[in-house]
Design a protein around this nucleic acid. Sequence first.
DNA 1: ACCGATATGTCCGTTAACGAACATACCGTG
DNA 2: CACGGTATGTTCGTTAACGGACATATCGGT
Lengths: 248, 248
Amino acid sequence: MTTGNTESTKQNPKDNRLLAALSETDYERLLPDLELVPLPLAWAVYEAGGTLGYVYFPTTSIISLLYVMENGSSAEIAVTGNDGLVGISLFMGGESTPSRAVVQSAGYGYRLKASVLKKEFAQGGELQHLALRYTQALITQMAQTAVCNRHHTVEQQLCRWLLLSLDRLPTNELSMTQELIANMLGVRREGVTEAAGHLQNAGIISYSRGKITVLDRPKLEQRVCECYAVVKKEHDRLFPQTKDQTVH
Amino acid sequence: MTTGNTESTKQNPKDNRLLAALSETDYERLLPDLELVPLPLAWAVYEAGGTLGYVYFPTTSIISLLYVMENGSSAEIAVTGNDGLVGISLFMGGESTPSRAVVQSAGYGYRLKASVLKKEFAQGGELQHLALRYTQALITQMAQTAVCNRHHTVEQQLCRWLLLSLDRLPTNELSMTQELIANMLGVRREGVTEAAGHLQNAGIISYSRGKITVLDRPKLEQRVCECYAVVKKEHDRLFPQTKDQTVH
DNA sequence: ACCGATATGTCCGTTAACGAACATACCGTG
DNA sequence: CACGGTATGTTCGTTAACGGACATATCGGT
C-alpha cells in the first residue's frame, strides 16, 4: 500500500518482476494474452496431480507451494510472489506435479493461457530464459527448505517464513493465523504460538487474531537461520536488481 | 554386475537412460562429444558456487546433491544415477548453484562439454525436453526430501535412502559407511547405527564395515515412508519405461 | 600374529517438538 | 450487549533425536 498501486484498477503486468524483465518487443507481444485475475485467499491455483490451464504471474499476491501427505499433514516447500510465476510444470514438461499451490496472501496476478506460454517458450526467447532462471531460484529455495526442516528450530523457521513473506508484500503487515503458519511450516500450532510469543516479547513483531505486524525487521534478520540469506542471495544473483528494471 | 557390463571397456552411453531416450539422429550427433570418465568415490563433481565445465550422465555411478551449512553439517537433497544428469544449472541459466555434487557410489559416466550442451539445448530439440523433464523429476525428489525431513523418522528415511540408492545400482549391495549415510541424511551417526540395527535384526539388511546388503527388499518397502513411492511414481510418470528404450 | 585405523555398538543426560486437553481472549453478528 | 466462533495461551506427559563419551569389533598391512 505504500506504493499505492495495489488497487485492481492500478495493476500493471510489470509489477511482476519476471514480466518486467522482458524486452519491450517480447512484452508487447505477450501483453494481449495477459489477463488480470484476482487471487483470493486460500484459493488453490492448482491441485496435486491436476493439469494447469494457465501460468500465473503474481503481482500483489503470494502463492505457497505445498506438499500434502497421506495423513493430511503438510509442508510448504516454496513460496512465490511478484518475483516469479506459478505453474513451472507446464514448460518443464510434466504438465502436473505432486504439489498443490495455494494463495497465501490475497491479491492480484496476471495469467497466461498454457498454449500461449508453451508456444512462446518453445521459441527459445527471453521468456524461456527468465522462466528457467526463475525455476533455478525456486530449486534453491526448495533445497534450502529441506535443509532448514532438518536442522533448524521452529522459531528460526518462523523468522525465515516471515521474511520470505515480507519480501513479497508492499507492507510490513501480513494476514495469517498461527494455525495456518503451522500448516505451512509443517509444525504444530502450539509451536508457532510459542515462537511467535518470543518474538512479540522481544518487540520484533506484534500480532492479534490473524494480523501480524513486523516492527523490527533488522532484529528479525538477526534471529533467522542462514537459510533465508542463502535463498535471497541466490535469487539476487540470478535476478540482479538494476535501476532500469524498477523504473522502466 | 548382474548385467555384466560395468567394466569400463563395456560401457555404453545408452546405459544412461536420458541418453538412451534420444532418437538415433540426435544420439549420433552427440556421440562424438560424449566422453567416458571414471567417477571415483567421494569426488566432487562440482562445488557450491563453482562453475561447471561439463554435464555428467552417470551410467554405473551414483551422485548425491548436498547442501553444506555454515557449521559444517550437511543434508542430501537429491540423488542421481543412470536415470539423469548432473549439472542442471548449466542449462537452467544460473551457471552455478549453492549445492555440491559428490560421488556416492563409484562408477562411470559420460560427460559433455558445457558449450556443446548449451548449443544442443538452445536448439530446443529432444535433449532439451528430456533435460527439463528430468529436472522436473528432480524437483519432486527435492520437495519430497523436504517433507520427509520434516515428518519422518530416521529409520524411515534410511529405508528411503537405501531404496533410492538400490534403484540406481545393478546389485543389492552398496558400499557406504553409516557415518557417510548420516552425513547424507543430515542426522547423527548413532541414529543411523540404531536404525540399521533394527533393519538387520529384522533380517532386511546385513552389513559390516561399509558394505550393506539388502536381503529383503519387499520388507524394506513396507517400512519406508510414502516419500519413496511418490518420487518413484512421479519419475515413472515422467519417464515411462517402454521395452523399446531398454532394448533399443 | 599383531597393530593401528576405522567401523560399529552402547551408554548417559538433555532438549525440541509432539499430541492432547483445556483455558482464556477477542471479534463480528444478531 | 450477549453470544458463538475463532484465535491464542498454557499445561501435562511422552518421544525422537541430539551431543558427547566411551567400548568393542573388524579389516588390511607389515
